[in-house]
């Protein structure tokens, strides 16, 4: 099944390009964590406001921090948010809710779908902002006081969890709806009837017999929300409700550079991080387009 999917992906140039881009970005994130030329937060590694040079590939900012290392660090944050979202938000929440809703139907279906529709009718960014802003004090208190996990906050992971958690709460709706529609079709098929007749449990039917048929759709649903997830993380951090310094994020970088005087004198401060953010969102958008192609060709 998966083999076939990969074959199909490798037959499409667009899919190949987008996957290569995503791979490149993740590589950048991983290698950046290990091989970054400087600590992304270390000030005065060079003169302030130095344009790009061999020593500082993307120049330095007004604290004399190496922009290249900062971009690598921020890429790492974006990569973490996307992985967390893919695993928890995309694979677990979306898939679980979609399959359960489609398979059981009835009041469970109504409950999940109507909740989703209500959430969907409110602009998601505001909801995420609200959650991230109001939960933060209590959440931080919980981490520091109740759990006593200082390290979690100091590595910046606590912020990450809050951000992706807030996003995951709302980003599942479209994906789950699409999956549910497909599950509704599949559960009427003969082999599901047969499995039921043989006494297979609901769990086995859902995850053994139905799930494999949904792979293309799952990839589609994840990729179609990735752009939103990445953009939302950056927006939240820009507004001060997401990742906070000293941890790196593109949102924080853009915030620091929002003065026109600064940008007009040192445009490279915006251009390099801007390109990387464009690449992140673009690569997932392209993957979505090819996934849509694949899913549609399968129907036929």
């Amino acid at each position: 099944m998966i083999g076939r999917l990969f074959r199909e992906i490798f037959h499409r140039r667009l899919a190949k390009i987008s996957l290569a881009m995503i791979l490149f970005l993740f590589l950048m994130a991983v290698l950046g964590a290990v091989f970054a030329p400087y600590d992304y937060n270390k000030q005065e590694v060079g003169p302030n406001f130095q344009g790009p040079s061999w020593e500082h590939l993307c120049g330095t900012d007004d604290y004399g921090r190496d922009m290249f290392s900062r971009i690598l660090g921020a890429t790492g944050t974006t990569a973490m948010v996307s992985i967390l979202y893919i695993v928890f938000g995309g694979l677990i929440i979306t898939v679980l809710l979609g399959i359960i809703s489609g398979y059981y139907g009835g009041w469970i279906d109504t409950l999940i779908m109507r909740t989703g529709e209500i959430l969907y009718s409110i602009p998601t960014l505001y909801l995420v902002l609200l959650i991230a802003a109001t939960l933060r004090p209590g959440y931080n208190n919980f981490i520091y006081e109740t759990l006593g996990w200082q390290w979690l906050a100091q590595t910046g992971f606590a912020d990450l969890v809050l951000v992706f958690g807030a996003i995951s709460l709302f980003a599942w709706v479209v994906g789950a709806k699409t999956l549910r529609a497909r599950v509704l079709q599949i559960r009427e098929l003969g082999y599901i009837e047969a499995a039921k007749a043989l006494g297979a449990s609901d769990f086995r039917i859902m995850f053994h017999h139905i799930l494999p048929n949904l792979l293309g759709l799952i990839i589609l649903s994840i990729t179609s929300t990735m752009g939103f997830v990445i953009g939302t993380e950056i927006a939240l951090s820009f507004l001060g409700f997401g990742i906070r310094p000293p941890h790196p994020s593109f949102g924080v970088m853009f915030f620091e550079m929002q003065s026109i005087d600064l940008i007009s004198a040192h445009p490279y401060l915006l251009i390099f991080p801007g390109i990387v953010v464009v690449l992140w969102i673009l690569s997932f958008s392209l993957l979505r387009i090819s996934a849509t192609d694949i899913a549609e060709s399968r129907k036929g």
Binding site: I260, I263, L270, G274, L282
Partner: peptide, 29 residues
């Protein structure tokens, strides 16, 4: 269509660079 998309992608990157450059240029004037 696929080719068009690749071009679009390249264009998008170029436009980003151009816009930031333009903002920068206007500021120094």
């Amino acid at each position: 269509m696929k080719k068009g998309l690749i071009y679009a992608m390249v264009c998008l990157v170029l436009i980003t660079v151009l816009i930031t450059g333009l903002v920068a240029g206007c500021g120094t004037k």
